[in-house]
Design a protein around this nucleic acid. Sequence first.
DNA 1: TGCCAGGCCCTCTTTAGGGCCTT
Length: 221
Amino acid sequence: MQQAACRNADTVIVLDFETTGMSPDQGDRAIEIGAVKLEAGQLADRFQGLMNPGLRVSAFIEGLTGISNEMLVGAPACEEVMNEFADFIAGHDLVAHNASFDRRFLDAELARIGRGYSGEFACSMLAARRVYRDAPDHKLGTLVAYKGIPHDGTFHRALADAEMTAGLWLGMLGDITARHEFANIPFSLMQELARVPAAAAAGFLGRARRRNQVKQKCRVC
DNA sequence: TGCCAGGCCCTCTTTAGGGCCTT
């Protein structure tokens, strides 16, 4: 059986990496992964792991994340943590804020251990640019404040950021449902939303809702 | 502190350039 056929459409993994820098192609590595599993809009599970990249992180990263070199010395190797994480995300679609960044590190770290994943990515930042066009900007912290998403004040730690991204994701789904009267919002629609011009997003959602209604009527018939 | 890279978006564009966002 193909892995893609096993994906649960009601379940997504919202993830966030802390890393040594911006680019795995330049030698940067992951130092922490955090993720939450959402099942039918409810938080069902968490994953958090510091990992030792085998190199020292800069003072800038220590200051930004609060993750020190001393903390990483005693952490398990990236290979061990990422192997567990590959099991955690198996068969599920994935969400991240500025997903292109997290996808590069996920791909790079899993490639190192010969693992992969079958889910597809959606980006909460690209979706938010279309749903919340009046927000001051679309940084995660700004959107959390803008939408009043509960948090404990921790930023730039993987699990905390993943939980806030999950809150933002659920909030967007709720706002789209309320504004456009969706009965349900497929994951693929959120991917498509991220690809339409921002100015055309409202029209896109209106047309998508009408298509959704037609499908539902057909099911009744 | 701000740069590094990569992908994406927007517009005074499309044979381009600047800005956003992630660590």
